[in-house]
Design a protein around this nucleic acid. Structure first.
Lengths: 260, 260
DNA sequence: ATTGTCGAAAGTTTCGAAAATCTGGTTTAC
DNA sequence: GTAAACCAGATTTTCGAAACTTTCGACAAT
């Protein structure tokens, strides 16, 4: 009988660096389609395209200056990522948001982020530490954006925030975990955006605390802090974002209007 | 200060049944594009389209009798799911497979499937139990396919196998967990297929054991059995599939040939 | 023998127009 | 008065051809 593998966590699961099969992180491609995809994703994440909004080809074609086919391909991608939905025959729309979804999302994030972070710490390298220090520096230099900061500042902060969190887990050996973690992080960004717009609450410097725990290779503390970090954000959103609790948030503008 | 949510696992995360935002399970759509997508996914999962194979539009157009645009959209979906890859300017290809990937995949599956199953058991209903009984019955009626069973039998078994495993976790309250679980399950199907082709090993009736543990609502036992189920499959593949261990498996046919 | 350049062939990407489908308002039948 | 049938306008879906990129082999130069 083959007793090649022990019952405990697979030996070699983390040793083997060979070719990974996990889904591509589409962002590094540079064809026209991917440009449109990138822009559109960013617009959804920043609620420029609002939750539940109908995505009409006419408007989009104008906005992104491209053809129907290209749009269709990009939209198709967004559906797979969960940022848009489609029903055959009646086009596309931005995915709705809801408290239930945010809670679900966040719980799974805690589950995955901690696993990923623990593994990253276990396999950390000098370069990894350097990128954490560097990305934290860039993040802290900007400071948490306030309600009336211009859009561009908020977007820049969003980028640096993601870069920092990506850096933390970069040395995790599981491509699949990394991939799903990243998708969930993006999903959460939509909710963070709402929080950023509405909240003025003060928070401790959680990113600093996490950074130091990680650099000290204190896995338990780091995971615990990261967990709190995620949970606090949920609390903050629940407390500060009006409309998120009762039914779908319609935070920006009413989604429908009707003629007189 | 808002103390709306406790620090422990979110209250209400599992209570709230409201609109979910998790990615659509694309399978229930019925437009032409989705037909092509379904067929193509099935072909990749069953290694009719082999790992690493170049996916040329000319051939595909003929095989699925459709236009380039439609194909492109379907392929785009498959890339998001991790079943295909693309590099700008040089088309699409079926994702490679490797031992490292299978190990990674399986480890994450254990992590997610057990969490999902535990939650499903916690919220099980009569209808849930009924579907488990029914889908198990259909699965057992077919028996594990052997090396020289015809393709159609293997495919039918694949369908019933998936239906059974889906049934187990159907009442899990976390749409996101369910979605990722399902994607990972499909990924694993590619490897199962190889095992099915090459192996004659006998296995205990693990599906029956799991079914009974689940119906008895013995969460710990059920999760443990499910974990073993996944791990045993890995062992079997490592033992029986030639070529999986050393580098990428090229199990079906050489991918390249050259003229004299 | 190796390297470099050019051009033809194969393949991919993008586009806009034709066909199919949906939406909402108006008419018609009961 | 209600509901079914119908029509026109708007929108989505599908398609094949034009534009562009990459690949490959032949030929010339080193």
């Amino acid at each position: 009988m083959a007793k090649v593998l022990p019952a405990a966590p697979f030996e070699g699961a983390n040793e083997n660096l060979a070719a990974t099969t996990a889904p591509q992180d589409v962002s590094r491609e540079d064809a026209a389609t991917f440009d449109v995809l990138r822009k559109m994703r960013e617009d959804i994440l920043c609620c420029v395209l609002k939750p539940d909004q109908k995505l009409k080809f006419g408007e989009l074609r104008q906005r992104y200056d491209t053809s129907v086919g290209t749009l269709r391909e990009a939209l198709s991608h967004l559906v797979s990522e969960g940022l848009a939905r489609t029903e055959s025959g009646r086009g596309f729309q931005v995915s709705p948001i809801s408290l239930a979804d945010f809670l679900d999302l966040s719980e799974l994030r805690v589950y995955l982020e901690t696993k990923t972070l623990a593994d990253a710490i276990r396999h950390g390298t000098d370069a990894w530490e350097a990128e954490i220090v560097s990305s934290y520096f860039l993040l802290s230099k900007l400071g948490a954006p306030k309600q009336d900061d211009p859009l561009s500042v908020k977007q820049e902060w969003g980028k640096r925030h993601k870069r920092y969190h990506d850096a933390l887990v970069a040395t995790c050996r599981s491509p699949w975990s990394l991939h799903y973690r990243s998708e969930l992080f993006d999903q959460a960004r939509r909710y963070h955006w709402l929080t950023m717009i509405h909240s003025r609450l003060h928070r401790r410097n959680e990113h600093l605390e996490i950074r130091d725990a990680v650099l000290a290779r204190d896995s338990d503390l780091a995971c615990s802090l990261l967990e709190q970090h995620i949970r606090t954000t949920v609390e903050q959103a629940v407390a500060d974002v009006p409309g998120l609790i009762r039914g779908n948030a319609r935070v920006l503008k009413p989604g429908k209007r009707r003629k007189s």
